[in-house]
């Protein structure tokens, strides 16, 4: 398997593909069972956001290194409407679409690193990492 997989997100089936790919790479990197579910859930939330809030985009999953640490890196990118107030969007329970508003804050909690960049009218990019311990 390649070190990087790129999954287009434009329907619900592709969300499943993305989290399966993430799980596969995480297995290869030596993550254990419960960490695999954590990673797959984070990918699912963030891919769901692409579909729900931006219609389409992509998820890129790769391995990453820092010093002697090894981990998995997930980048979710879309050219959708962007987020006006990121602080608000990151609040637990905040949703503009009658969702549970748990996706962004929850994903941040699940992963070791979480960055979100969004420009209104241009799109949103979420970059997140989980290190193998």
């Amino acid at each position: 398997m390649a070190d990087e997989s790129r999954i287009n997100i434009s329907n619900a089936g592709e969300i499943v593909t993305a989290r399966q790919q993430g799980r596969m790479l995480a297995v290869q990197l030596g993550f254990d069972g419960s960490e695999l579910t954590v990673i797959a859930t984070a990918i699912s939330e963030i891919a769901r956001n692409i579909l729900e809030h931006a219609k389409d985009g992509e998820v890129v999953i790769s391995q990453c290194y820092h010093r002697r640490k090894c981990g998995i890196c997930v980048v979710a990118r879309d050219f959708g409407p962007g987020i006006t107030d990121i602080d608000q969007a990151m609040q637990y329970g905040y949703s503009t679409h009658k969702g549970l508003g748990i996706g962004l804050p929850g994903t941040k909690l699940l992963m070791d690193e979480f960055h979100i960049v969004s420009v209104v009218g241009e799109g949103t990019t979420v970059t997140m990492k989980k290190w193998r311990h």
Partner: peptide
């Protein structure tokens, strides 16, 4: 189900 995220829960 290998994942139950916020969408599935809702």
């Amino acid at each position: 189900l290998d994942v139950i995220d916020s969408f599935a829960t809702r």
